[in-house]
Amino acid sequence: MKRKRIRNTIKSDINIIPFLDILLVLLMIFMLIPSKWIQSFEVNLPNSPVTPNIINNEKLIITIEILGMGFYNLIINTKHVEKVRLDQISSEISHQTHIAPNITCLIAASKTVEYDEIIKVLNLLNKIGINSIGMITNPSV
């Protein structure tokens, strides 16, 4: 009879291993989810009905279109130069700064162009000494 009573009694010990497994899983969830929220935030830029028109100014406008793969189109006011390299852009803009020191450079690039190409152009313009740089975007409707 003693054996029947021992088998039917309930253990009062806590099994801690499954409890720790659940705690570790919850800890990982709470560590990973906030980092995903921080890294994928949306930017809601303000719209303005009044946009500055830089073309009406007395400045020389140079537009650099980034084609990718190390090729660029260069537009100096109405003169178009197609498929040039970065060193050719550097020499042309340096020549233009000697003629007219008041220059505005605009950078145009597709969404698919690598960010590295844009940084190369920005670094080049910084070395030349161009302070007025803009990015061309589609106007909001």
Score class of each variant (00 low, 15 high):
Asp13Gln: 15
Leu125Ser: 02
Asp21Ser: 15
Lys36His: 08
Leu23Asp: 08
Thr78Gln: 08
Leu23Tyr: 14
Ile119Val: 13
Ile76Lys: 06
Phe71Arg: 02
Val50Phe: 05
Leu122Met: 10
Ile89Phe: 12
Asp13Thr: 14
Asn77Gln: 10
Ile33Met: 12
Ser140Glu: 04
Val113Leu: 10
Leu125Gln: 01
Ile75Cys: 01
Ile89Arg: 05
Asn8Tyr: 02
Arg7Ile: 06
Glu42Asp: 13
Leu20Ile: 14
Glu92Arg: 05
Val25Ser: 14
Glu58His: 14
Lys2Ile: 12
Ile16Gly: 03
Glu117Gly: 02
Met135Ser: 03
Ser48Glu: 07
Leu45Trp: 04
Asn15Asp: 04
Pro18Thr: 03
Leu23Trp: 04
Pro101Tyr: 00
Leu26Ala: 15
Leu124Val: 11
Lys127Ser: 09
Gly129Ile: 01
Trp37Lys: 12
Pro18Cys: 07
Phe30Ser: 09
Ile66Glu: 06
Asn56Asp: 11
Phe30Glu: 07
Thr63Gly: 02
Gln39Asn: 12
Asp13Leu: 13
Tyr115Glu: 14
Ser91Ala: 12
Val43Pro: 05
Lys127Leu: 11
Leu122Ser: 09
Ser40Val: 05
Ile55Met: 12
Ile119Ala: 14
Val84Trp: 00
Ile22Asp: 15
Met1Asp: 07
Met31Lys: 10
Ile61Asp: 09
Met1Ile: 07
Leu23Val: 08
Ser90Lys: 03
Thr112Leu: 13
Gly70Lys: 15
Pro139Gln: 03
Leu20Val: 15
Leu106Asp: 03
Asp87Met: 01
His95Arg: 08
His95Cys: 05
Asp13Met: 10
Leu23Lys: 11
Ile89Tyr: 02
Pro52Met: 05
Ile61Lys: 14
Leu122Val: 09
Ser35Phe: 14
